[in-house]
């Protein structure tokens, strides 16, 4: 489905902006939106480009950069930080040998931080694509990563 079809599906409605951006992103292997597409969407919905950029930049779900097949988003809010004596982010950074914000060379994983995932009661938490994993421990994180690599989880 190309951009035009996605816009038609949403009947060019301004308040479908987020859905349009998500649909467009999910169309692509590397899950990103280009600046050109943002301008086209702004024109089509008759909203200012700055507005679309504001939305793009607000949601960590949306990205201007090419990303991997699996996007790991680690919650960066306070309960997740305080909840365990290990750090989810550095654990993953070490395991995948990438820094936060980067994509692995094989374009398999992208590592990001995100605002609250709404699982403070089961912190610490992370999300991989649409799945949320909670009550993380170091061993659990490493196991989850392995299972993605082996194709057990997807």
């Amino acid at each position: 489905m190309n951009l035009q079809k996605i816009l038609e599906k949403h009947a060019f409605q301004k308040d479908h902006l987020i859905e349009i951006l998500i649909d467009l992103q999910n169309e692509k292997t590397y899950k990103f939106v280009t600046e050109e597409e943002v301008s086209l969407i702004a024109d089509a919905l008759k909203v200012p480009v700055s507005h679309v950029c504001g939305v793009m930049s607000f949601y960590t779900l949306l990205s201007f950069d090419e990303r991997g097949k699996y996007i790991i988003q680690v919650c960066k809010d306070v309960p997740c930080y305080l909840n365990d004596d290990f750090n989810v982010l550095t654990t993953i950074e070490k395991a995948l040998d990438i820094s936060c914000g980067d994509t692995s060379k094989d374009q398999f994983f992208t590592l990001e931080q995100t605002a609250c995932l709404g699982c403070c009661d089961e912190a610490p938490a992370m999300r991989i694509n649409n799945k949320v994993y909670t009550k993380l421990t170091k061993a659990k994180v490493l196991r989850i990563l392995e299972e993605y690599k082996e194709g057990i989880l997807c």
Binding site: P48, S50, H51, C53, G54, S57, F58, A115
Partner: peptide
């Protein structure tokens, strides 16, 4: 005109 906008969060 809406040139300026809040970009990013927190």
């Amino acid at each position: 005109v809406h040139v300026l906008e809040r970009m990013g969060r927190s």
